[in-house]
Amino acid sequence: MILKHFARKYLREEVLPSTFCPGCGLGIIINCFLKAVEELGYSNLNDFIFCSGIGCTAWIPSPHFKADSIHTLHGRAVAVAFGVKMVRPEHHVVVFGGDGDIAGIGIGHLIHAAKRNLEIVVIMANNFTYAMTGGQLSPTTPFESLTLTSPYGNIEKPLDVVKVIDAAGASFAARWTTYHIIPLIRTIKTAIKKNGFSFIEVVSQCPTIYGRRAGFKSAYDMLKYFKEHSVPIEKAKNMSDEELKDKFVVGIFVDREKLGFTSLYKQVINKARVKL
């Protein structure tokens, strides 16, 4: 008997091994997502539709997931997901994207979907760089970090995307790293069940492009770094900016109950029909 990894029942065998580099955090994100799906009792992905843009993370669902998926333009996955969710409100619509795709070129759509509280899940893998194009500066690249397009050090402070989602008024926002597999699985389960916009940032290792340039020796080195530099949100509240300078604040940042966009839109249809 050959025992197979649990995730393989949700994956297209013909595309394995994946195109991701050895040690890439995206495989861990796939595992956490599919473990959450399994624990929620789904034996296949028929209740899900996946949208993604351009970049390494966008390749998570397309072509790996044995599911309906749409691999869209750079930055537009959330906009496409809007159309999909409105027409198929009974499906779980999940967007996978990297920091460049979601928080760079696509941040306008992200903020507005969060503001409308559209009932979709957005999982942003944050590897601090545009990995597919060789490692350029991204909106989340740490201050003073060296990239291809910040060869003298990054002079921009990274964007805290979770805070942006909070300000936009979404139902749910969280941040974990690929080290935090157990809380990440639990958080993904909550996000899938949530009737509102759910955003999860997963700090993820890119050992080939970002890690190598930043001086990490292996994928595990990066996981260890994530572990040692993570601070739970409760603890971070009592820490200064200086103390938090090179830390990842992790945990559930936003969890509020409010009506989602498709529910609100149903009310619009009801109002229009009463008038007739």
Partner: peptide, 10 residues
């Protein structure tokens, strides 16, 4: 099994 990014461990 979760940390293996390549679905190689069972």
């Amino acid at each position: 099994e979760i940390y293996c990014p390549d679905f190689a461990i069972a």
